[in-house]
Design a protein around this nucleic acid. Structure first.
Lengths: 225, 225
DNA sequence: AGGAATGGCGAGTGACACTATCCATAGTAG
DNA sequence: CTACTATGGATAGTGTCACTCGCCATTCCT
């Protein structure tokens, strides 16, 4: 099919498809002439996947490109694929610029940003040890947990890795559920895509379920406002 | 204290503080002259909270403003506060522009975006009914779950609300944990802030815990790559 | 007295995700 | 064979966001 049909069937505008082609999100079609290429169902499928990752999950275009590259590269080894993808995913916070906003902070020890990772990461190590998780530290996920812990304390909340243990327990079961669903999959590409969908695309939905449950529990405890 | 001290103690640059003041994130200091105001610890505290919501959680400036306004307004009723905050929080995906990209999609029924909410929301209703959750439909969280369900199916994954039940079960316990931690809090402002911190700020950390657990389980099942 | 700091304002910046316009060529309906 | 639309490729422009800068008339502080 040509680009106009691809656009019509995917609901993505032609300029946007061209943009994805240029940025390497979508592989080029088979060229039939200098200004003619044709696309097949794999392009359509890929385009839908792109739109889901960007539109539903909220990944940036570059993160999406990296994730898709990982899918293409490691489609036969789900473990390696997950490792790649989990390393690629952003920390789910806007994205910290590198330059330090303010360097000094001489008087107060309250600045709380400089050595957040140092002490926080050792706490995460304690948490993963307690859980029996064999995970490499320094992974983005560990950084996020460490930073959150530090931030909560800087804001005066009495929190340490032990406070997160119950959550870790629930996360463990959630992950077990996730992995269960990858067992049954036909071909490698299907399984690779499914792995990405069920780990990455499900994230907003899981947060949303937590919010629904919070709403319910809040009403239960504090009376229906 | 004056703005320079506020900046030094918070680690936020003066121009940024001015920007937050202008945008109503930070209440103005007590004016002592035409070009002089002084700030107190509440401003410092608020500024740290702002930085956490924006920097750690990744909220937009306007969402942060709304959340803070809710905290100030409903600091004595945690249920109402949570309701407000849960209604304010974005769906955690970039943020869909309103204008439809492509209207027609005549031939294929695969476009899958138009009536996503319609059938999806009834599924979410089934899910919440099964869970015994008394939540209002049409809440952003319900929309996200509905949209995710639709998207997964559009991508060929066999998924419906029943598939989410185990996750909902875990989300329910997570929310129970969350609410437990709000029981002990001294003054209303403390509790209101704590509610926001433990529900909003914890979100990235919970996803991170899931990723750590996924890494572990993946290694367990597929052998340590 | 005089240099530094302040508040308040408008304008500028860089990143991001598109979106629009060109152009030379290719398909295609008459 | 011709007029007309569509295509791929490239360059430039748009709107939003979260700051960041520069300016100015005070005001502080020494």
């Amino acid at each position: 099919m040509r680009i106009s049909e691809l656009s019509r069937r995917s609901g993505v505008s032609i300029p946007t498809i061209k943009y994805y082609l240029r940025d390497g999100l979508l592989p080029p079609g088979r060229a039939t002439a200098a200004n003619q290429a044709d696309y097949d169902d794999s392009h359509l499928r890929r385009l839908r996947l792109i739109r889901s990752l960007i539109g539903v999950r909220g990944l940036s275009v570059s993160a999406t490109r990296d994730v898709l590259a990982a899918v293409d590269k490691q489609r036969e080894n789900v473990h390696l694929l997950l490792g790649l993808v989990l390393g690629i995913l952003p920390a789910d916070r806007g994205g910290e610029p590198e330059g330090s906003t303010q360097a000094d902070d001489t008087s107060a020890p309250a600045g709380a940003d400089a050595d957040a990772d140092v002490s926080g990461l050792s706490e995460v190590a304690a948490l993963t040890a307690e859980m029996g998780w064999k995970t490499s530290p320094h992974t983005p996920a560990a950084q996020v947990v460490a930073e959150t812990l530090e931030t909560l304390r800087a804001l005066g909340v009495d929190y340490d890795w032990r406070s997160l243990l119950p959550y870790a327990e629930l996360a463990d079961r959630t992950a077990a559920l996730d992995l269960d669903q990858l067992a049954d999959a036909s071909d490698p590409l299907q399984q690779a895509e499914r792995a990405v969908l069920l780990t990455v695309l499900l994230e907003p939905a899981l947060l949303a379920l937590r919010r629904l449950a919070q709403e319910h529990h809040s009403a239960q405890r504090y009376g229906g406002g």
